Simulated scan of single mutants.
Amino acid sequence: MTPADLSRTVLHAVRRAVDEDALRAPVPTRVRVERTRPGGSGDYACAVALQLAGPAALPALEVARILRERVAAEPGVGRVEITGPGFLSFTLDAPAVGDRAVLDAVREQGLAYGHGDALRDEILQFHHAREVRAAVTAQAVRRLVAAQGARVRVSCDAASDPDWARLGVTVDAHGTPPVPLTEVRPVPAGATAGELLERLGPDAARWGLLRPAGHDRAALGPELLVQGEANPLFRVRYAHARTRALTRGAALLGFTADPAPHAEPAAPRGSRPEHAPGAEPAPYSEVLYDGAARPLLDLLADHPGVLLAAARHRAPDRVARQMEAVAHAFFDFHDSCPPLPAGDEKPSAAHRARLALAEAAGTVLAGGLSLLGIRAPEHL
């Protein structure tokens, strides 16, 4: 069960409680579920009971008890506790189940992993000045909200700069439209699209414009072109290219990814492992993914929530920061749990599972960059 799945499960429990007249309160449009902070109880926590206590005219602890019994019976939820003044804390079933669900979802949905229909009922009109950062930001926001099901148009104060097209910008109308609109007004870039394209090229220019929050000034210097770890854009794209190289390397060695194989017992180097007679192989969760994989798995599980939050807050910088975090966690995982065998080592179940995680990371990186309008090369 992913965090998005858990959020929907809690929301379904609220609807059930209202339908059964156990709770008299308006059903919220969404329920926010967050990872438990250090020292807390369970895997995730939710404050929905405190949110509903006032409208329901009940103590938050009572609302929490009503919801707990309805959530606890759902598949994938191992335990539900009530903590503090009425927080719900959730412990999910064996992590392997949730991990495999995440990897399966990434594999099945591809670059669209994390897209949804939470904004399907919204018709939006974004408007921006004739300025390159505003234009690029509006285009990125358009991609984000459209990926969550919204219908959206973008207008500009005046005729578009012809160079905007080279940055992937399209504008539906010019002049101020006579309808309610949302202004997109980041701090101006201080340069034209043509100047940025000449100095940086389209990908680095878009990253430089989108990576800072809209209220911060964009850093648009030559550091965006440095091919080294100090450049976040290079690190993100290199992480993606490395995941693709792992897939090619595995193919040359004759194996493919498997998100949930059975683990094989240790065998002498160079020999083919065999299971002991009558023994069942250990489940992969006990052997294949150690602590180095957990941060990466958690980031992949959180990805749909990050995309939805970025769309709701009109904040493409959140996607950029998510890509940086995924890249960092991928390299840590890669260095600690190599997906490819070394030397005369034979490919094992562990390698197939690690490769599945690496490929999922690459897919998420490519999908996130795509939403920002940035290419994810196979080779760097």
Rank of each mutant, 00 (worst) to 15 (best):
P38Q: 02
S336W: 08
P178D: 05
A301R: 02
P55Y: 11
G175W: 02
A257L: 12
A165W: 04
V31W: 07
A342S: 12
P268Y: 12
A311H: 05
D172R: 11
P281C: 09
L61P: 06
S285A: 14
P232A: 09
V287Y: 03
G373K: 04
A219N: 14
L88T: 10
L297A: 09
P85H: 10
S155R: 04
P295M: 02
H303W: 15
A218K: 01
A204S: 10
T91V: 09
H174V: 15
P188Q: 11
H127N: 07
Y289R: 09
A56G: 05
E280Y: 11
A360W: 03
S155W: 13
A22G: 12
G84C: 02
A191K: 06
M323S: 03
L6E: 01
L92N: 02
A376D: 01
R153F: 10
K346E: 14
L224F: 06
A140V: 02
D19V: 00
A165V: 14
A230Q: 15
P177R: 08
A263D: 05
G228Y: 09
D161A: 11
R248C: 05
R354A: 05
A329M: 03
R318I: 01
P162V: 12
C337W: 04
A241G: 13
V71P: 00
T363R: 04
R70V: 00
A282L: 14
D258C: 01
G221I: 11
G291D: 10
A218S: 14
L288E: 15
V154H: 00
R120C: 09
I82S: 10
R133D: 10
Y44V: 09
P177D: 12
S41H: 07
G305K: 01
P341R: 08
L380M: 08
L252W: 09
A17N: 08
R133Q: 13
V10D: 04
D163H: 12
F330W: 08
A140S: 00
Q51C: 09
R32A: 14
V152H: 00
A342R: 12
A276I: 06
R206M: 08
A349N: 06
V364Y: 00
A56Y: 01
R133G: 01
A150Q: 05
V80G: 07
A189Y: 08
I374Y: 06
A251M: 06
Q51K: 11
R151N: 05
S336K: 13
S7I: 00
P85N: 06
L67G: 02
G214R: 03
E81D: 15
L124R: 11
R35M: 04
L355P: 04
T2R: 13
F90R: 09
A49L: 07
G78M: 03
R166Q: 13
R272D: 12
D157N: 13
Y284G: 00
A193Q: 05
L371A: 07
T256Y: 02
P180A: 06
A159I: 09
A56S: 06
D335A: 12
R272Q: 13
T91Y: 04
H215C: 10
R130D: 11
V102R: 01
P75G: 07
G305P: 00
A251S: 11
G368H: 11
G54M: 10
A320E: 00
P273L: 12
Y284H: 14
L167W: 00
H262I: 07
F90P: 01
V14I: 13
P95E: 07
A366K: 02
G214N: 06
P28V: 03
A309D: 14
P295F: 03
G368Q: 01
M323Q: 15
T2S: 05
P338L: 02
L167G: 01
